[in-house]
């Protein structure tokens, strides 16, 4: 293979899953209450994509990783302070909404347009990475539309493993039904991979990686273009929290035999 991969990871922030989320009607459609105050984390599947990208770049010489993030600039900056310590990348920031109620069609257009303008990006060497879905919209459609806009016709979704052979060909394991994997081979870049969890643990925080990334993160944030990403053609009639609470019966100080019998009766009912 001549030259390494140019890996572009699309990923942004989502509210920390531990937070209490409540919808509200914002000026331009549904939003989360206190959205700007909620602690944010990197979208988990996009996070896996980023860690896989960094690992791949490490293993294939002459590769490079960009992280394209669409989110409110101030929140992106905060997010970068934690993830920039983990792996090396060059940030491309877009200042706009990272909310789940935005129209994925418009989000894809913004991301594709931004990627298209990345200086020095060789589209023939492009591996477009992202999460198989976001933890906000949870739709699993954006990456495919970004890839379509970038004329990528080899696409994979819910990827857990990517193996690259010496000639640059890809072998991909995608999650399919009933805990199985579909194994495919692809002639090489360009391709889109929407990652599931992958196989790498979250890298530890490394201050040197952080210091290195900061040289590009801050300038990228400073020149982040504003993007009008809203609910687009969607019309929300209602957004509601489900009724969550059940009346829990707590069974204590009961012999295991009795509990087992009760559960078996329940299973058979």
């Amino acid at each position: 293979m001549s030259g390494g991969f140019h890996i572009v990871v699309c990923g942004s922030l989502v509210p920390d899953p531990l937070q209490t989320l409540e919808p509200m009607e914002g000026p331009t459609g549904p939003a989360l209450k206190n959205e700007m105050m909620l602690p944010a984390v990197l979208d988990p599947w996009a996070g896996h994509a980023l860690f896989e990208a960094a690992q791949l770049a490490k293993n294939v010489p002459d590769s490079k990783v960009w992280l394209v993030s669409l989110g409110p600039k101030a929140k992106l900056q905060q997010l970068m302070m934690s993830i920039a310590q983990k792996v090396s990348f060059e940030l491309v920031a877009i200042d706009g909404s990272a909310g789940g109620f935005t129209d994925p069609f418009d989000v894809a257009a913004t991301l594709a347009d931004t990627i298209d303008k990345i200086e020095g990006l060789d589209r023939t060497r492009l591996l477009l990475f992202g999460g198989c879905a976001s933890a906000s919209r949870d739709s699993g459609v954006t990456m495919q539309m970004v890839a379509e806009r970038l004329d990528i016709v080899d696409q994979f979704l819910a990827v857990d493993k990517l193996t690259v052979s010496s000639d640059g060909a890809l072998e991909v394991l995608e999650r399919i039904e009933a805990g199985q994997y579909q194994v495919s081979s692809c002639a090489g870049a360009p391709a889109m991979l929407g990652w599931a969890t992958g196989s790498l643990p979250e890298p530890p925080n490394n201050p040197q990686v952080g210091m290195m990334n900061m040289r590009t993160v801050m300038p990228a944030l400073q020149k982040a273009q504003a993007a009008e990403v809203g609910i687009g053609g969607l019309k929300y009639a209602a957004v509601e929290l489900p009724k969550q609470r059940r009346e829990t019966r707590v069974v204590k100080d009961t012999p295991a035999e009795e509990i087992a019998q009760e559960i078996v009766d329940w299973l058979k009912a």
């Binding site: 302070m81 310590q85 201050p207 801050m218």
Partner: peptide, 23 residues
């Protein structure tokens, strides 16, 4: 909390100092 985030964002935005959480 909110004050720290507010001032911290300005500080980090200046690019002159680096604040690394989780460390």
């Amino acid at each position: 909390g909110q004050f720290s985030q507010w001032i911290g964002n300005q500080l980090m935005g200046s690019g002159l100092v680096q604040v690394w959480p989780g460390m």
